[in-house]
């Protein structure tokens, strides 16, 4: 890891060690830099309580798609992960929660068969163990390289949400930069509570698609968490430093019945 980092918000040069003390939020301008899945888990849950599950799932190349295997290998090399989701059980103020965190550094956090499977398993796990489900989203959308299979991860992940609703366990989604397209149009948008980090990109069609479709001038805050919040699709925008406490309170209150039983 480099010793210095240039802030994406204000351009100031920041010490890496200093930046990590605030979980990558710039002390000058408040810019929230992206966290890896591991950093996110460390920043959010009770220390040492995360137990990773389903870590053995790996993407294959079901369509024989050009360059997919190479891209997977490169992403694995870069992140040390097998795919874009890290999931398992953790505790939040002592309460067990089922969590899945996407890592944008792994092929843009794109949702293919492995991500979909891990997400649905983590939602089902919450329903089975009667605890809250927390999903941290960071994804460009469905993984193109798995074609129709990745499109089918939209209903598949929603099936997990259905299980949570049937079981009466709360499901909270946190939109981090970016939460887009196929992920936003499935499990992310049907959570009981939706939180977002400031200035996270949140939207349906990526810039390239919009351009091809002839979408003209857009507002300055278009496809930002603040835009979605203004229009009623995000419940609260929460700064990273306060996220843990907000999540813990929601889990405790909404999950009162499941944790009591």
């Amino acid at each position: 890891m480099a010793e210095f980092i240039k802030c994406s918000g204000c351009g100031r040069v920041l010490f890496h060690t200093e930046l990590m003390q605030s979980w990558k939020v710039c002390g000058h301008c408040g810019w929230h830099h992206r966290l890896s899945a591991r950093e996110r888990i460390e920043a959010t849950f009770d220390p040492g309580t995360f137990e990773e599950l389903d870590a053995d799932l790996v993407s294959v190349d079901p369509l024989g798609f050009p360059e997919y295997r190479e891209k997977l290998a490169a992403a694995e090399q870069k992140t040390g992960l097998r795919d874009a989701i890290v999931s398992g059980m953790a505790r939040l103020d002592g309460l067990p929660v089922s969590v899945a965190v996407s890592d944008f550094a792994f092929m843009g956090g794109s949702m293919g068969s492995v991500a979909g499977e891990k997400i649905v398993r983590s939602l089902e796990r919450a329903a089975e163990r009667r605890c809250a489900a927390i999903q941290f989203c960071a994804s460009g959308g469905a993984r193109m390289q798995e074609g129709m299979l990745s499109l089918m991860q939209l209903p598949k992940t929603n099936a997990g949400v259905q299980r949570c609703r049937d079981a009466g366990v709360p499901y909270i989604a946190v939109f981090t930069d970016p939460t887009m397209a196929g992920v936003l149009a499935s499990y992310a948008s049907v959570a009981d509570v939706i939180l977002a980090e400031p200035r996270a990109m949140v939207g349906f069609a990526g810039a390239r698609v919009s351009k091809q479709a002839g979408v003209g001038k857009v507002p300055d805050d278009f496809q930002m968490a603040e835009f979605a919040h203004k229009h009623g699709f995000i419940d609260r925008i929460v700064a990273r430093g306060e996220l843990r406490d907000v999540l813990a309170a929601l889990v405790r209150i909404l999950g009162a019945r499941c944790y009591a039983g």
């Binding site: 939209l154 936003l184 149009a185 948008s189 049907v190 939207g203 479709a213 229009h231 009623g232 699709f233």
Partner: peptide, 17 residues
Amino acid sequence: ADPGVDSESRGISEAIA
């Protein structure tokens, strides 16, 4: 689905989900 500003404002992703 329609990718325009109007659709985004009215929550196209949420509607599909």
